[in-house]
Amino acid sequence: METRDKILSSVLKNQPAHRELPQVPMFHRNPESLVSAFEKSLKYMTGEFVHRPPPDFAAYLRNKFPDAKIICSAVPEYAGNRKPEDYTNWSDAHDIDVTIVRSPLGVAETGSVLLTEKELRVNTIGFLAHDIVILLDPKNIVENIHDAYQHPAFREAKYAVLMTGPSGSADIEGTTVHPAQGVTTLTVIMWPVS
């Protein structure tokens, strides 16, 4: 017998009698403002929040990341000096100072944003860059994680990540320090889709 069949027949023989699958409620509490709830949650996770598109985005970036040389943009709102497609070898995205990408979904409960290969195009631009700036239409913020998992990306994308604040580690002394292996800072800008 093949291993697969051995395992499945052992499981079948040993699994206990059927137990019902419960319905999962949506647990909506309808907060007054999803944007404010998102902002609070994101900041709790050490993410940065910007209420509206800066009038001069280039100046905003220069000011926020004065040493940045390579800005990889995956959005039409800003050109940058790299596109994700420039990185045919995904490891090369290591040279990016700032990645700019749009998220299709924000989660007020946790301050998370969704990114998939559709938005990133080259997935490593989201992790190997030093910093990341994420545009999010406030209309795309949902209340909680139950809402988030209704998004079709989780059934369609080959890779989907709920990213919540910059990478961190609490492996020494239990207190979270930034960065760990991923980005050093993560900023979300409320930026309606034009």
Partner: peptide, 26 residues
Amino acid sequence: DEHLAVFIRLLTRSATGMPITQYTSH
């Protein structure tokens, strides 16, 4: 996925006391 939501809400809060981890990857 609708079941995953329940576990994602419980796991990190139980583990480290944070609402979620920085990366929940699929």
